[in-house]
Amino acid sequence: MKNYSIITLGASGSGKTIFLASLFKVFSIQGKFGFSLDVQDSSKRMVMNKVFADLTTGEQWPLGTRNISEWALTAYVNNSEISKVPACKITYVDYKGGLITDVSTKDEENYGGYNDLETYVKEADAVLVILDGQKLLSLMQDHDLTNKVVFRWLNEDLSALMQMVDKCNKYIPVHFIISKWDLLEGSYSLPDVKKRLLNNVPEFYNVVDNRRKVSCPVRLIPVSSLGKGFAVLQPDGQMKKLSVNPHPMNVECPLAFALTDKLPNPGRSKQKPFKPTVWDWIVIGLCIALIQPSNGFVLIIAIVYFGFRLLRNKKQRLNEISSSEEAFEQILSKCQEIKKQFNADFPDSDLAKIPSFKSR
């Protein structure tokens, strides 16, 4: 069974913990996306459920991650008997956001954690980089870059993130998640944000361009872990909760891209050969006995019959999932559907398709 290592990078307050909790909530039971995720450690499952419950009912926002932690997830697909068939394992690495920006060589514990984080990045199968949507909103509003908070975010948090991304294998997919997209949506489009980042953040431009040159998947993915209307930005910069009914947006998309972009032929499943049944052989025998050069009616019946059988056989293959390989193939197929819909909604998200940035 395949095992994917996915690490999410982001500064403190960018929304890493909330994204993980929302992702687990969306995939906790198989629904419209065709597969589910479960945590191997039952105590961690309880932690994720509590984090999401605190998000929806508590007045305060949950605390961020305190150290590096691994979440051992298993992806499952239900077969025709609603039994869970394991498809693949996903090791999701989470860490304290300040580990990138607040680290000091005098702090041996933090410094060791930073080195561990570098190792995780270099060995990951996919890297998800969370760009704080609230900070991006300030960047979009600060046309002349005179806001000291924005300037510090660009030159500290974002710069440190890009330096860390540059350490990962250049053939490993890197996707930039724009968190809190509900703050930007309606005022700015994805092309607006993309242009601003490429034109005003040299480190971002260089990371994207280096990966583009080696045809490595890289894109911007707008995400709202709780959905529009759940919270509103206050004048003091704090987020005030308004609703107890979150409606996550696009949280499934980073996972879909992470699982498929590294594969040479993502989503291309191996089809089982068509095996004739006893009735099929009887029909074949009758057709051979009855068919004549001038009798096209029997030929039409044979074409209709076997056309129906092929369609039915295909449908049975989708329903009769018995092995991890078959379950994984179905997940890849579902991920392709998610990607197709996302690309239709956000056609400007793919940064690798930009032929040249010289005119930026």
Rank of each mutant, 00 (worst) to 15 (best):
174 V>W: 00
220 L>C: 03
79 N>V: 09
16 K>L: 03
227 G>T: 07
247 H>E: 15
344 A>V: 09
128 L>V: 11
12 S>L: 12
338 I>G: 01
144 D>M: 09
327 A>R: 04
132 D>V: 09
216 C>D: 00
195 K>W: 13
209 D>Q: 09
159 S>Q: 08
138 S>I: 05
16 K>Y: 04
184 L>S: 02
284 I>C: 06
32 K>Q: 13
318 L>Q: 11
271 Q>R: 14
220 L>W: 04
208 V>G: 02
128 L>E: 09
162 M>I: 09
323 S>C: 07
244 V>Y: 10
20 L>C: 06
79 N>S: 06
43 S>Q: 14
269 S>F: 14
58 G>I: 05
92 Y>R: 08
331 I>M: 00
314 K>V: 10
47 V>Q: 07
3 N>P: 09
92 Y>H: 09
61 W>Q: 09
132 D>E: 12
172 I>P: 00
180 K>A: 07
109 E>S: 13
224 S>R: 03
274 F>N: 07
124 A>Y: 08
129 V>F: 01
181 W>E: 00
220 L>Y: 03
303 I>W: 05
327 A>C: 05
274 F>G: 11
350 D>G: 00
339 K>N: 14
159 S>Y: 14
134 Q>E: 14
36 S>V: 02
51 V>C: 06
1 M>R: 08
121 V>H: 01
23 L>E: 08
15 G>V: 05
151 F>C: 15
127 V>L: 07
294 S>C: 07
70 E>L: 13
339 K>W: 00
38 D>A: 14
266 P>W: 00
